Amino acid sequence: MKLKLIYLLLLIVLFLVLYVLRNQIIGLFFSSEEKQTIESIVEKYNPKVKASLQNNFAKNNIDSTDFEMGILAFKKEQILELYIRKNETDNWKMLKKYPFTAFSGKIGPKLKNGDKQIPEGIYQMEYLNPNSKYHLSIKVNYPNTFDEEKAKLDGRTDLGGDIMIHGKSVTIGCIPVGDKNIEEIFILATKTKNKHFPIIIAPQDFRTNKTFPEIEAISWEKDLYENIAKELTNFE
């Protein structure tokens, strides 16, 4: 009788161990959370975003269903500015400003993987991630051709990547703007006519401060900042 009881207890323990291991393996390879799609994000947040930004669109006399967008981000000011226009022949108009909710690195471009630098340059939106660990995210196409050319000149090979504009309040080289703000930017990114819209990341706003920073680690900062300053004139 005692032997049967011991066998029964061992079977129960074995069952519990296997059950725990099964759940751990499933959790390792599969997320327990339901995967979002861009469409499901739009369905979830569009009504709130539409109501929040309707006055901003009205003040600029632009239809919220028929526009192009562009983003400027300034590291010194820690501000992201979102611009809209009807089409490429019109002038850009500022829709809204969003403060960074965290910052990493210092003034100067991103040079290598792990340097925690926010890139500086003229970029584009690459894709939207509705399942980001940081609520929602927008991929910046770093490194671009300019970055790769200068890396080749310097003899650098591992430039890093995965630069995002995202929610939350943490960063190691990306641009966080908080959850509510990334919901607005993300929804607009799904609606804009220019899907790979410009994202210009500058060390500072050269429209108000025309002095270029000197970066000790490189010799080509003047080329970079002249390109950025020229591009910013389109948003004055």
Results as ranks from 00 to 15, higher is better:
Pro213Asp: 06
Val17His: 04
Pro99Ala: 09
Gly121Pro: 05
Val42His: 03
Leu5Gly: 01
Phe146His: 10
Pro119Glu: 05
Ile25Asn: 05
Ala217Asn: 11
Asn181Gln: 11
Gln124Met: 04
Asp158Arg: 13
Lys44Leu: 13
Tyr19Leu: 09
Asn46Gly: 00
Val20Met: 01
Ser32Thr: 09
Arg207Tyr: 01
Thr37Val: 07
Tyr225Val: 02
Glu148Gln: 15
Ala51Asp: 15
Lys35Ala: 14
Lys133Ser: 14
Ile84Ala: 04
Gln117Lys: 12
Ile138Lys: 01
Lys97Val: 06
Asp158Ser: 12
Glu120Ser: 10
Ile107Ser: 08
Glu126Cys: 01
Trp92Glu: 04
Ala73Pro: 04
Ile172Val: 05
Phe74Gly: 02
Leu153Lys: 15
Glu226Lys: 15
Pro203Thr: 10
Asn91Ile: 02
His166Arg: 07
Leu53Gln: 08
His135Phe: 11
Gly167Pro: 07
Gly161Gln: 11
His196Lys: 14
Val17Met: 06
Met94His: 00
Leu188His: 08
Glu221Ala: 09
Gly70Ser: 12
Glu43Val: 12
Lys191Ile: 01
Lys112Glu: 09
Asn234Phe: 09
Tyr45Gly: 00
Asn23Met: 11
Thr89Ala: 14
Thr192Tyr: 02
Ser104Pro: 00
Trp92Lys: 03
Thr171Ser: 13
Gln117Trp: 01
Leu8Val: 01
Leu16Arg: 05
Ile200Gln: 09
Ile122Pro: 06
Gly108Pro: 01
Met1Asp: 10
Tyr134Ser: 09
Asp90Ala: 14
Asn23Glu: 15
Glu226Thr: 12
Phe74Asp: 00
Leu111Met: 10
Glu149Ser: 12
Pro176Trp: 07
Lys210Cys: 02
Phe235Tyr: 15
Asn46Met: 11
Asn227Lys: 15
Asp66Leu: 04
Ile182His: 03
Gly178Ser: 08
Thr65Val: 08
Arg22Leu: 12
Gln117Ala: 10
Ser132Asp: 13
Asn56Asp: 14
Trp92Gly: 06
Asp205Asn: 15
Gly167Ala: 04
Pro109Gly: 11
Tyr83Val: 03
Trp220Phe: 08
Asn91Arg: 13
Glu88Ile: 02
Glu216Gly: 11
Glu149Asn: 13
Ile228Glu: 06
Pro109Asn: 06
Val49Asp: 07
Phe74Met: 10
Ala202Ser: 14
Ile25Arg: 02
Ile25Gly: 08
Glu184Tyr: 07
Phe197Asp: 03
Thr233Lys: 15
Ile62Glu: 07
Gly105Thr: 02
Asn60Gln: 05
Gly70Asn: 04
Leu8Glu: 08
Val42Ile: 12
Asn234Arg: 14
Ala51Leu: 14
Glu88Gln: 15
Lys86Gln: 14
Phe186Lys: 07
Leu111Asn: 02
Arg156Thr: 07
Leu159Thr: 05
Asn141Thr: 08
Gln36Phe: 10
Leu18Phe: 13
Ile138His: 04
Ser40Gly: 06
Tyr7Ile: 12
